[in-house]
Design a protein around this nucleic acid. Structure first.
Lengths: 139, 139
DNA sequence: TCTTGAACCTATAGTCGCTATAGCAACTAC
DNA sequence: GTAGTTGCTATAGCGACTATAGGTTCAAGA
């Protein structure tokens, strides 16, 4: 019926100390305890933690997850807010991808200018890191 | 000739407390001081900090930058090591991009399933976050 | 030369999202 | 019963900074 923190950890992929950390931060409820003071969780806790885990996997900041959790406890509210949060995060992720792609291009340029056979003193990799003017694009 | 920590900050784009932090961590040398105990930097310091800044912009972990700095102080060594570090980071960045693109696809799917007009209780965004089985791909 | 205000100094604590450690207690399987 | 795994709390540490407090020094204008 109910299960231990280790079971919850295995079933969600969230590490045990992280679960306790989430509890301390108020992201999940304090569960009931056994007579010996050990935590015992229910299916509801499992669902909530899965929700949190999934949001983290998606790269949502904790704050966004908190907002979504708050929303989901008001089932009559319109879902436009939830949509807004997801859309914002989509925009964030696209920005990050674009940024990384610029860096990729530059690192590629840097590595291609180096044969690996000459001495450090003439190494374009090091020169490229030391001198922004050698960059093709801004970053 | 030499310049203050504020000047160095403006010329490199590295914030003042961050410069002091780098000094404490041994990434840059302790500069000379005025009689009044204020730091005064030279062109050499500027170059080194620019190098560090550029590496950070490229997403290099501090450890990789330390290695590159060590390398550049041994000008007779072959540059294969520098090349290796840059190549490793290129690989890291490509992995991160691929990961983010998977997340982008899923967030897109999630937002598109939501019209914003219905109630939270029926919101696909929240359902999608709560249930991994609704995902198309693994992550 | 004096004054004012910006820039500088040190030291410490806080950020985020965990993760690790120490030193115990309880549960489970044999 | 006992051994071994799992659990408990509390605290410290991680990376890479950032913020704050409370004081000192510098540079430019009057």
């Amino acid at each position: 019926m109910d299960f231990s923190i280790g079971d919850l950890s295995r079933r969600t992929g969230v590490k045990v100390p992280t679960i306790r950390y989430y509890e301390k931060e108020g992201l999940i409820e304090e569960p009931i305890r056994t007579e010996g003071n050990q935590r015992r969780y229910t299916e509801r806790d499992l669902e909530r933690l899965t929700f949190i885990r999934h949001g983290r996997d998606l790269g949502l900041p904790m704050m966004a997850i908190r907002e979504l959790l708050d929303l989901s406890s008001h089932p009559d509210a319109p879902c436009a807010d939830a949509d807004r949060i997801a859309s914002e995060q989509l925009q964030n992720i696209r920005t990050r991808i674009a940024q990384l792609q610029r860096l990729e291009a530059e690192l590629l340029r840097i590595t291609q200018s180096c044969t690996g056979t000459h001495a450090i003193a003439d190494c374009n990799v090091l020169k490229a890191f030391g001198d922004h003017r050698l960059c093709k694009g801004e970053h």
